[in-house]
């Protein structure tokens, strides 16, 4: 990048840069490839429950904005990989969601608690549902 262009380049501070790198390392995704086409968001089954659209989570991650850590989106994502097959830039958005969740979960945070379920619900639910839910939403 030549220096005369530097005025047009968005600079992010060290803290944001560090956070962005963490997300990239954990997810293994090159999030800078995203050009905000919105294809991921358009096919996402959970947008009605989300505060930020999946494409916005990717944009915020590009900028290293830690607000993603407190977003509802990361918890309601179903890891369905619909976004992954749609992304023209080859980004696996589900991996990014998991990376952000992991940053939170690794602070010994549990999003859900199995004690919240009634005995009837526990009896009815197949273990595949309970195990996968706790794998995604608890530390």
């Amino acid at each position: 990048m030549s220096s005369e262009n530097s005025g047009q380049i968005l600079k992010i501070n060290a803290e944001n840069k560090e956070f962005k790198e963490k997300i990239q390392d954990l997810s293994g995704e090159k999030i800078d490839l995203c050009f905000q086409c919105g294809a991921c968001s358009s096919g996402c089954p959970m947008v009605q429950e989300m505060d930020y659209l999946p494409s916005k989570i990717i944009r915020m991650s590009q900028l290293g904005l830690k607000e993603v850590l407190s977003s509802k989106t990361i918890w309601v994502c179903t890891t369905c990989f619909n976004c992954e097959v749609r992304c023209p830039r080859g980004i696996d958005i589900a991996n990014v969601m998991e990376a952000i969740r992991q940053v939170v979960l690794r602070q010994k945070f549990d999003k859900v608690n199995i004690d919240m379920l009634t005995p009837e619900e526990l009896r009815e639910l197949p273990q595949i549902a309970i195990v996968s839910n706790l794998r995604k939403l608890t530390a």
């Binding site: 890891t79 619909n82 859900v112 549902a129």
Partner: peptide
């Protein structure tokens, strides 16, 4: 036929999964 049913959110987000 390839759309997600809500998967494991059936545990704590029953209504959303019912809708999907």
């Amino acid at each position: 036929k390839q759309k997600c049913c809500g998967s494991y959110h059936t545990v704590f987000m029953k209504e959303r999964v019912a809708d999907l």
